[in-house]
Design a protein around this nucleic acid. Sequence first.
DNA 1: GTTCTAGAAC
DNA 2: GTTCTAGAAC
Length: 778
Amino acid sequence: MDLNAGGSTSAPAPPSESLGASAETKEEERRGKEVMVVLVGPPGSGKSTFAEAVADGSTAGRHWVRVCQDTIGNGKAGTKIQCLKAASDALKEGNSVFIDRCNLEREQRADFVKLGATLHVDVHAVTLDLPAKICISRAVSRKGHEGNLQGGKAALVVNRMLQKKDAPLLTEGFSRIMSCNDDGDIKKAVDLYSTLGPSDSLPSGVFGQKSKGPVQVGIMKFLKKADSTGVEESSGPKLTLGETKPGQQNPLPKQENVEAMFSRAMEVEKGLNDKKKNEGHAKESDCYDDGSCTLAFPSISTADFQFDLDRASDIIVDTVANFLQKYDSIRLVLVDLSKKSRILSLVEEKAAKKSIDSRRFFTFVGDITQLHTKGGLQCSVIANAANWRLKPGGGGVNAAVYNAAGESLQHATKKCADALRPGTSVAVPLPSISPLHQREGVTHVIHVLGPNMNPMRPDYLNNDYTRGSKLLHEAYSSLFENFASIVRSHMGKVNSESGTEKSASGGTSPKDTKVKREDNHVSERMKKYKLPCTKANAPNGLDNAMTSSAVPNQTKQGNNKKSGVVTSKTWGSWAQALYELAMNPEKYKNSDSILETSDEFVVLKDLYPKAKRHVLVISRMDGLDSLADVKKEHLPLLRRMHSAGVKWAQKFLEEDADLVFRLGYHSVPSMRQLHLHIISQDFNSASLKNKKHWNSFTTSFFRDSVDVIEEIEQHGSATTSSDEKVLAMELRCHRCRSAHPNIPKLKSHIANCKSSFPSHLLQKNSLLSSSTMHMDGT
DNA sequence: GTTCTAGAAC
DNA sequence: GTTCTAGAAC
């Protein structure tokens, strides 16, 4: 690492003012050569040693003053204000200063930077960026430390401090930032400052920072991740900013200078990236040429669904930026028919503002079904603004895509999904017989359903833009992830010959990790539920995204007929496990978790039991998702589910007579498919972890089975008055009602609380214990 | 529903 | 430093 690169320039005096060479102007002249060096580093990083070494070893006639907060109060630790005063005085007297305090947080440094600006002196940051271990061991072992920070206390403090560390940035107002990563760097920095003559100045910019440094990261974020472009460590003055001509003083960067620096820095980085790309990523341009990595998509929801264009354009730019950051070698094109399209111009404007790489995301005016033949743009994947039935017709993009693709798209779509929920998408491989495939080279169509703000269309959101924006965000994310999944499998095929893991994954290693994690997550869940992996639910790294969107809410037809298939409540993919089990219990008959199966219900041990005994009686009726769906006609079912629950409680009581059981439903369940909880009231379980868990079983959120049945008998439906607010309530013991500050404390309380249960539970037949069982004979 | 994690509280 | 929670992601 060449800390000296850029040269410490031996500078002749700047041209002085020609008029009135008074003492004052001489003072002015002299100013600008003083420098304030803000040392940044935790205790033990060697700040004092650094400052002393320069002050003592200065060979060029510059006078250095060390301002040390640990000694500033008559040899004892003082305040920041004292330091500021001392620094100010020293600078005014023509000295240069070292600010010898930790200065790890931006806020801590800000006042010094400000002081420098006021006095028109350069402010440098020198970061002593040694491994935490070293700092701790030095801080721990030192004796007689000025600030009395040594021993075990020091380790604690160093660790705490490092957690809050903000690396210095040019934008804070530093004209020069220098990082020392080891003792060698420190020595070079000490030499550099020691040999700095009274009228010398050092070049501005960032020096000696590893690639993780803040400036680089910021730029990389715009242009590409450091790891993927392989830009080497920025040793030396990559950013030769504010070139200091001999003799020219080096003023603090003003805001516009800083901006100029950044844009230049970005150019430097960009050049490097381009170079790298040309050298090592020739595939990328191939990939764009054959269109295999390009997705063309229309603006979702902004036409017939009347979504606000301004909001939509924000969401597009936002999701695109996120997506491009996550993946390399992928290109996105927003397409609209009209040249005057407002959404295109809004998106263009906002994308430019966000500095999104225009080679990887741009807008295109044309027909999305004729991009190749009419527009000369090759895109292997196009998105369709679909309707929820995934049917052809309607108008706009949907009609155009189905028309252009022919019947084979309908068949192919049907194989993948029956319907879509707003905010989701489904990728459909386009058969090669499709004219769209043959003529335009489109291999996949991804159907997307966005939120609807048009009262004449289904799932009207009534101007609820909170929900609408969320859904639109989800829609684009889902679309892009589906696209990434296609590209991955394409790349896998293309590169399968080379056989290396990296090439097979399309080089998107961060995402690979993520996919693997998801797989683990899914298989873990499968394992826990002991659901054998079938083709339908098998976790598959490449197709995961597609599978999960292709199997949305309704996996079976005729579901929930009463409301026309799509219910108001949407269920995430994770919420489908009970439904899947209820519909196909035979698939899981070998599972230990299933205690009983009948035509009407399945009894399952809860896989994350919240008490010693916790089982679910799951209705098998398709379309009965939760208590809200229950009507009088379901009463016989509810009674039989209740009886089954009582039977199992009885069985458990035979094994442990101390248990007490409660049977009931969650007002708003997290898992789809009506299920009755049978849970022992000890709540002694490691799976009971949070407030929501506790309150869902001990507040009005838990609806006793007996009450539910009675209510439906009387009113025809169960009240849903108790909403999810009660889940956030304070933690109270379910027996004595005492309040507890957190879950661990609550749990230790309930382990010992012997109070009787609240009378309202005792009076009803809500609780089942060995004594009540005997009395009731049930 | 769980897991993960940032950050608040201690 | 640890413990705990709340929110996001899945």
